[in-house]
Nucleic acid binder design. Structure first.
Lengths: 247, 247
DNA sequence: CGGCGGTACGCTGTATACAGGATGGTGTGC
DNA sequence: GCACACCATCCTGTATACAGCGTACCGCCG
């Protein structure tokens, strides 16, 4: 393989490297603080430096990589302060987005379709969950995450303000990584499920205020669970220079 | 000049190209819809494709360039819908930031220093402005913009939440470009001056609620002025495919 | 004269080459 | 034994080469 084809869209190397690295970072296979040398990553993933370079820049924009011009890029550390700041910011954006969707849904039924669908999926999941034994419950987490993932996506898609949508989307990577980190057991999951149901019901009802409140509550609960886990599991994550930005 | 030095920080080619293009776009020297070919820009600015590429990607993040993978990058068009969406988003972020700064200032006097300073500069400017003839007034716009610019910078710097700060900063490019577009005459400027004074007073007083309201008011007024100008001056800007994103 | 096909150009994506710093380890001097 | 300096190594920034893809212009045919 000498030179690359343009192809861009479907098979683009840059995109592939980006997705791969993103997945590895979100799943914590790449630990916070890990060095991301362009050449090394390139060799490992069978790509040249150029696409790797671009992928790393994009990951930096997503907040998953700490990038300083002359230095080696590193997987962004996870700090308590950083998590708090992230959720404080999400608390500003996402409740507003949820409210906006509820309002839009009240005016145009069509935007509610995916949300009614999600609500149904959620109810089905809820009903079947209790019947499972502990092992099967843990395995079903993935399915639940799929629903929450779809919910987030649906909100972004339904968001009428492109700036708001993009900013929320840009934060998703960090959110996903943190979720993979909080193995909070079934209790937190059931609570989260209930919170999602509340959000979905408010949105499909067209109740903007309730949707906003439900979203805010969900974020607050998630943050609390995350803090509990981060402080109990001593976080060896990101032992490298830990500039806690929020103070 | 064969190959480049690393130097990065001070003389970095990529940074230079970025700043240059950014300035040209903000000042409308590069018109909305203009094509930005990597090779062409590179030749014009005496840089190779690599730094140009990176600069264009960064400008896309700033919302000043529309970038689609396989295609030629273009200077982002200016649409009424886009401007509305931008300001709607700013209305979500900046009042919160202003309030946050006011709160922080009430707890720690030191964060107020730059704001007291700005307030003084503003008062001085205000006093001297009336004495000028029309021509000198127009020339003094630059000085006023300096103050507003410094104000925005100061808010960003004082912002405790790095996510909020970064997002506001990322929007600055578009804001600046729009400002260069609204030659609203002295009346709008004097109003803006008054609005800034209100924000500064609220912040230095430590009154978060007033700061938030003042900021909101300022943004609403600015948007209104902008809309007036955009609709009166028929905006030939961005005649290329105008996907108005906000509907 | 209008529609259509072919060709030439330009563009991006990718790969690779080269030069200058930054970093980390090792050896030496105090 | 410790601190400092030197050196090897790696890594990034930049430049350039090559391959495919789209487009636009031009000529040809109906």
């Amino acid at each position: 393989m000498k030179a690359g084809r343009c192809m861009a869209r479907a098979t683009g190397k840059s995109e592939a490297v980006y997705e791969r690295l993103k997945g590895d970072i979100e799943s914590l296979r790449l630990r916070p603080g890990a060095k991301l040398s362009e050449v090394q990553v390139g060799e490992e993933l069978g790509a040249s430096r150029t696409p790797v370079r671009e992928a790393i820049r994009r990951l930096a924009r997503d907040g998953l990589v700490d990038f300083v011009p002359g230095e080696v890029a590193r997987v962004a550390p996870i700090s308590l302060g950083g998590v708090r700041a992230l959720f404080e910011f999400r608390m500003l954006l996402e409740p507003r987005a949820a409210a906006s969707v509820a309002t839009a849904g009240a005016a145009d039924e069509r935007v509610l379709v995916p949300f009614r669908d999600l609500l149904k999926r959620l109810e089905e999941f809820d009903e079947s969950f209790g019947a499972l034994d502990a092992g099967a419950q843990v395995r079903s987490y993935t399915k639940f995450y799929d629903v929450t993932e779809s919910f987030d996506q649906a909100v972004i898609a339904a968001c009428r303000n492109p700036y708001l949508a993009r900013t929320i989307r840009d934060l998703r990577g960090q959110t996903v990584r943190l979720r993979h980190l909080s193995h909070s057991g079934p209790r937190r999951m059931l609570n989260s499920l209930e919170e999602h149901r509340a959000m979905l019901k408010a949105i499909t009802r067209g109740d903007a205020q309730a949707a906003e409140a439900a979203c805010r509550h969900h974020l607050a609960q998630t943050l609390q669970a995350l803090i509990d886990n981060l402080t109990s599991q001593d976080l060896t994550f990101g032992r490298d220079v830990q500039v806690d930005i929020t103070g």
